[in-house]
Structure formats: structure tokens, C-alpha cells
Design a protein around this nucleic acid. Structure first.
Lengths: 334, 334
DNA sequence: CAGCTTCATGGAAACGTTTCCATATATAGG
DNA sequence: CCTATATATGGAAACGTTTCCATGAAGCTG
């Protein structure tokens, strides 16, 4: 593994010329170039990324902040994002914040030191939360796009229409004759869960069903599997709905398990519907009927947009982009 | 965001002194230090990671190569590894090779340019596969540890006892009176799957059950969900075993789904057992009985060992460490 | 063929740190 | 109080690139 000075010494040309030859600069004789390239090849030349970056102040790297890679939503997202970023010439620095705002802040300043070119954020960056470190990112004009989560300034976010999706779920349930619909709420600090909740309420109203507070169950998943024990508790306490609407697939999966555990059957006794359409949801038994988020499209759009911001700062601050959800029907609803 | 020269200018001290104050070097007056620290604080000092690294030739970063983050085995591993690495002062650079050896090679040389201090490998680095780029890593004496996968030189790997685990699964099935045991094989290029297969065979022999080639089903999962269609096909063709042993949890999950899909019941008609104990396996219905790999312990050990290698090159080349599996019994076996 | 332009090359500055060396000042020992 | 030692600080080199500037050679134009 040799550096540019080694190649210069071995080939007999100056460092400057070697650098030009290697970088494809046109002011170098074809013959010289081929000698240098051959020499670099033979001596296993490997450019020092840090020296390059020190000059260029650009790392060709973007960071993706997620709360928890063990949350099943993220792996498919990480996967498309990495693929797309690489296609566009960028590497991906992934980081798990474990839902810890302080840790996220640390990561962010570390990444700034590392000249990360832009941030993709699916964590704790929501109008309702405030993290100095994260907010400063936008203030400083750093290229930043939020994915799934809402940006405080309501710009540069890639979202699904959570409201519409939740309404669709309720509509579908009602169309199957299911009227007593329990709702498993996610973290109410997050706009996306609020929107799903509002969509649920609106769906109920639209269909002339009166809202019953007893049917709103808590299900923040990251802090233990609350949905699982919560649903069991409610069922055992005699609240038996026609259907359960989990405001995310993981929540719905937990609910389904709970329903079976207390001895009811899905969908014969209780139907279950989710929101996300994760890869695993198809492999469950019964397959989970759910509202699909177009993860692949959203992920690709997010990195495309971030990189556009990086390469043209003027594009920072454009309106959110909201994708349409759609329902995928399997067998968890009667 | 200011650099060290800004702090020097503002505080009135020289760059050298500022650097010493910031790095905790003792040859600096307490008063001077406090002035400088305060100044750095106020001016939002952020060290340039590239300049630091250019000098130090150390990045405090390790890379973790995995085949596919969407494979449900990896998220829990990535999670512990990142946590442990951070605890020890290192950041994690994650990369998905998408089972592409060439891509893995590209990543590796990119990471070398970036002075990554060591490599943690769970991908295509197996005695039976040969990738120039990956093999050269070991030849060059780069700190490297393999996790789950076998290193070609049979050193520096963190493994479970796959053979013993598979035997345990067969023993357990037989103890429940199940004798006609189908085996869903994983990628036979990988030593770990060969070992599990051998354990299955040995378990059969030990229990006096004759081996039936018709009961070996193919299940490489990464290339589409082969296990799912394969199991359906076999079942429909009339091969009805007492039990199916998926040589990984994802394979077992696919098998379970297939069993239900063709109209049989797990475990009443056909029992299913897996190998891994993924977080999702517990949430299935029925809960999957499976052989547990101690992922958390293994992940921690892998990074501990890698970092030991980085900090003391003499520790490179120590024998593999093999962890004991254990069975976790849920409800997918009669 | 003189005067331009174009092109190939070498040399050196610059990027932001850390660290070594030299110097200046303070402290201690006799 | 003088010398020897310890401590604090500034200045400069070094890390491996890229890029700018200067120089010289070669090719073109009239």
C-alpha cells in the first residue's frame, strides 16, 4: 500500500504530475500518464482519504440517523438508502441513536468534525421534540432531509400521508362490517403517530361510529413491548373489539400475538390491521393486512434530494414531499 | 464552527498551546487551559477529524461487513456491536455487501484508504469462498475478526457450536416422538450451514434414525424466499414430515408459513424448529422453538477482541472462540 | 524566424492538526 | 544569590494530498 510520494519516487515524476495523472487532469502527456498509472497499479497505490479530504473539505459521505436498527422498519430503509447513495457516489455512515437525544447530539457533532456532507434523519427530529444539536443543523444551513419524521420547519421531509392511510384502514375495516375498532397508539410525541390517530378518528366519524376512549390502547414499542402486554390486559379485562388497528406493523404484530395468547383467533374472533407493510408481515400467519408505505421510493427520494441539496445549496428548504399509502390485503381481517 | 487556529487567534495563544490545552497535555498552565477551554466552548470549536487523522494515522473506526441488513439476523448484532464499540471509543462503519464479493472488495479498499483500524466480518469470508480482497486483509496483518462466519485460516473467529446446536434440535424433536424430520439446508458454501447439516445427520444417527435424502430441502434465503416455495412444493408432493428443522430462524419462519398455507397446522400436524432465536421468533404464532445463539455475548466478544488486536497487534491470530448454543422451547413443536 | 500560444512538468503553498525543539520564565537547591 | 531543573509557551515541521504558479519546450501564425 503506497502513497503518492512513493509513486512519484518510483516513476521518476514529481508529486504534482503524479497527482494530475491519477486524477485525470488533462495537462499531462499520454505516455507519462500511462507510465504513472501502471506504476500506481503495480505498487498498489491507495490514496489517503484524509489528506484528500483535508484539501477538498468534502467527504462524499452522508449520515443516516435512526433510532434503533432493531426496529423492523429500518432495515429495508437502510438497504435502499445505502444502495442509492452508493449509486450516486456517496457512502453511508449509519448511526443508531437508541432514542437518546443526547447521543444523537454527540453523533451529530462528531459527524460535523468528519465533514459529513449531509444528514438524513429518521430520529427524534420532530416538531414536538427539541434537541439543540439537531435543530442547529438546520439553522446552520446544513443539507438535511427528514425521512418518515417531520422536520420542525415543515420543510425537506419525505413522508407518507399518515392521516389518509389511517382513514383507509378504518374504511376497510368498516367495509367488512367491523365497527368496534381498537387503536394502538404509538409515541404521541411524534407527529406521524398523531396524524395516524387523527386519521383513525376521522375514519370513525366519516363512518358514523362514535369514538370510545376505552378503545385507545398504548403501544410505544421501543420501551419494552408494551403493546403485547397492553392488549392482553385489555382483552382479559373484557374489552373485546371487532378489530385492532396497530398504528405500526410491529405494534400490530404484537397485538396479533397477544390475541392468540389469550385464546382468541385472528381473524375469526378479532381482526388485526397494521401500518407499514414490513417484509416480515407477509410471512406471518395469518398474513398481516396493512397500510403500505412505499419505503423504497421514499428512501430513494430522500437520498436524491439530500444529494441535490449538497450539490446545490439553493435547493435546501423545499416543501415536504408526501407519498400516498395503499392498502395490502392479506388474511388478518375477516 | 471554528478550528484550532481561530481559537488560537481569539484566545491570543499559539496554535501549539491551544492544541496542548485541548488535548489535556500537562505542559500548560491551569489558568491558560481554562481560558482556552472557555474560548473553545464559546466559539463552538470542532476539531477537524481529517487533519487529526492525517497525523495520527488512526481513525478510531472499525468497519462491520455484513451481507444484508434485511436478513433478520443482523440488526440485533449490529446493535450490540455498535454499542460496545462506542463504549470502547470506536465508531462503527456499517456496510452491506449484498452478497456481492466484488462489492465487498471495493468496500474494503475504500475502508483501507480511510484508515479504518480493523474489520469485523460476517460476510463471504469463509474457507470455501475466496475473495482476493478479503483474503489479502489477513495476509497484510490487518486486525480482523470474523463473526458467525469461519475465517479461512481458522483463527480469530467468533462462532457458535453449530454442530452441537443442530444435534440438540434433533434430540429434542426425537424426545417428543418426532422421527421423520425434514431439514431445510442453508447456503452449502458456508461452513456454518455445513456444520448444522452434519449435526442434523449425527443427531439422526445417534437416535437410530436412518437418513432420507428426500427430506433434505433447499432453502437459501437471500435469493428470494426459496424455503417458502420449496416447503409448499414438497408438502403438496406428499412428503409430509413429523417435523421441519429450519437451519436458521428465517428459514423456519418461511417453513411455518408454508405449512399453514397448504393447510396443515403447526405444531399439531407438523412441528417446526429453527436456529438463531431472533427477536421476531418470539412474536410469531405459535412462538418458534429454536436453538439460541448468544448474539449479544458473541457480538461483544467480537468487538472486544478486534479492539484488542488493534491496540496490540501481537494478539492477532488467536484461536477461534466457540460459544455454546442452547434451546429455547416455545410452541412450534408438539 | 520572431513572437505567441499551448502544453507538460516541477516546485511550493495550503489544508488543520500534533509534536518536537528552542526559548523564556519560574522554582528549587546549595 | 547563582546555577540547575522544571514548566510554560511559541514556532516550525510534518502528515499526504491538490492546486496554483513559474518555467521551459514545442507548435503555430504571419
Amino acid at each position: 500500500m503506497s502513497g503518492i510520494t512513493d509513486i512519484a519516487r518510483i516513476s521518476g515524476f514529481s508529486v504534482g504530475t503524479v497527482s494530475r495523472a491519477l486524477s485525470g487532469n488533462k495537462h499531462v502527456d499520454a505516455k507519462t500518464r500511462s507510465i504513472i498509472l501502471k506504476c500506481a497499479e503495480e505498487n498498489n497505490y491507495s490514496p489517503n482519504y484524509f489528506a484528500q479530504n483535508l484539501k477538498a473539505k468534502k467527504s462524499d459521505t452522508i449520515a443516516y440517523l435512526i433510532p434503533d436498527i432493531e426496529n423492523m422498519i429500518y432495515p429495508p430503509l437502510v438497504s435502499v438508502i445505502e444502495k442509492e447513495a452508493r449509486k450516486l457516489g456517496y457512502s453511508l455512515l449509519l448511526c443508531n441513536t437508541f432514542n437518546d437525544l443526547e447521543l444523537a447530539g454527540k453523533y451529530i457533532s462528531q459527524f460535523k468534525s468528519r465533514n459529513v456532507d449531509g444528514f438524513l434523519i429518521s430520529t427524534a427530529f420532530d416538531a414536538t421534540l427539541n434537541n439543540e444539536n439537531i435543530l442547529s443543523l438546520k439553522k446552520e444551513g446544513y443539507p438535511t432531509v427528514c425521512l418518515l419524521r417531520h422536520s420542525p420547519d415543515n420543510k425537506d421531509s419525505i413522508l407518507v400521508d399518515n392521516f389518509q392511510g389511517a382513514e383507509m384502514a378504518v374504511d376497510y375495516l368498516v367495509s367488512k362490517g367491523l365497527k368496534k375498532i381498537a387503536f394502538i397508539a404509538g409515541d404521541s410525541n411524534l407527529t406521524l403517530y398523531k396524524e395516524r390517530f387523527n386519521g383513525y378518528i376521522s375514519g370513525l366519524e366519516k363512518n358514523g361510529i362514535s369514538f370510545d376512549e376505552q378503545l385507545i390502547w398504548q403501544g410505544i414499542r421501543d420501551i419494552e413491548r408494551i403493546a403485547f402486554s397492553e392488549v392482553k390486559k385489555k382483552l382479559k379485562a373484557g374489552y373485546i373489539p371487532d378489530a385492532i388497528f396497530g398504528s405500526s406493523d410491529p405494534l400490530a404484530i404484537d397485538a396479533m400475538k397477544a390475541v392468540f395468547d389469550v385464546g382468541y383467533h385472528v381473524p375469526n374472533d378479532i381482526s388485526v390491521i397494521g401500518f407499514d407493510n414490513l417484509p416480515i408481515s407477509e410471512m406471518l400467519n395469518p398474513g398481516l393486512t396493512t397500510i403500505e408505505q412505499p419505503f423504497a421510493k421514499m428512501g430513494r427520494e430522500a437520498v436524491t434530494r439530500l444529494i441535490r441539496q449538497i450539490e446545490d445549496k439553493a435547493t435546501i428548504g423545499q416543501p415536504n414531499e408526501v407519498f400516498d399509502p395503499n392498502i395490502v390485503i392479506r388474511h388478518s381481517v375477516k
